[in-house]
Amino acid sequence: MSADVKSDNQPYDDINVTPMLDLAYVLLVVFIILTTASVQGVKVKSPTTHATSNLAKPQTRAITITADGAVYLDAYPVDMDQLRDTLAQYKAGNPALPVVLKADAAAQYDKVMQVLEVAKKLDITEIGLVTKRAAPE
């Protein structure tokens, strides 16, 4: 018998990693799907408008005001001081910070103005107001 031929009892020198990579990719895809499916905003009934615009930009922060006047920043409840501090941190990281304001149609106008004042004091100029598109007449 020659020394070049391996017998069946000798251990392998390499490991086939293809099945492990397949499993890793499947787990990654499942994780991405579950994560994006679980990200939910705060539901409010937006006012309607006939104008359309595309406000989708990277790193956009969403401020939501519910009908009872509760304020949320990216689906987390905040008061005005927390809103100011958190937006200031985001503004320091991104000087052109885009913000969208989504308020319930029944929300108090005073609360909307307070949020807009916070944005004005922080020199946030890219503010979009979220509305629902009205049905064509």
Rank of each mutant, 00 (worst) to 15 (best):
A67F: 03
A88C: 05
V100A: 07
Y90K: 06
Y25A: 15
M1I: 08
K121R: 06
A92K: 11
T66I: 00
A75F: 01
L116S: 10
A119P: 05
A75S: 01
V99F: 01
R133Y: 08
K91C: 02
P98V: 02
N94T: 05
T35C: 07
D110E: 10
G93S: 14
Q10L: 12
D22M: 15
R133S: 08
K132L: 08
A107P: 07
L28H: 07
A51V: 15
V118F: 02
V115T: 00
T49P: 03
L23K: 13
F31S: 13
P47F: 07
M20T: 12
A3G: 09
V17S: 12
L23E: 14
K121S: 06
P95D: 05
V5F: 10
D22V: 11
R84P: 04
L97V: 00
G41V: 02
V17K: 12
D81L: 11
D14Q: 11
I32P: 02
L122F: 01
P11N: 04
Q82S: 09
N16F: 08
D14G: 13
I124G: 01
A75M: 00
F31A: 11
V26I: 10
D8N: 14
D74Y: 00
P95M: 03
G69N: 03
V5E: 08
A103E: 06
G69L: 00
Q40E: 01
L101K: 07
Y76K: 13
A134V: 05
L73A: 03
M113S: 14
V100I: 09
L23C: 10
L122A: 00
Q10S: 12
A62K: 11
D74K: 02
T49V: 07
A135W: 15
M80V: 10
S2L: 14
Q89C: 15
M113W: 10
K102R: 10
T52R: 14
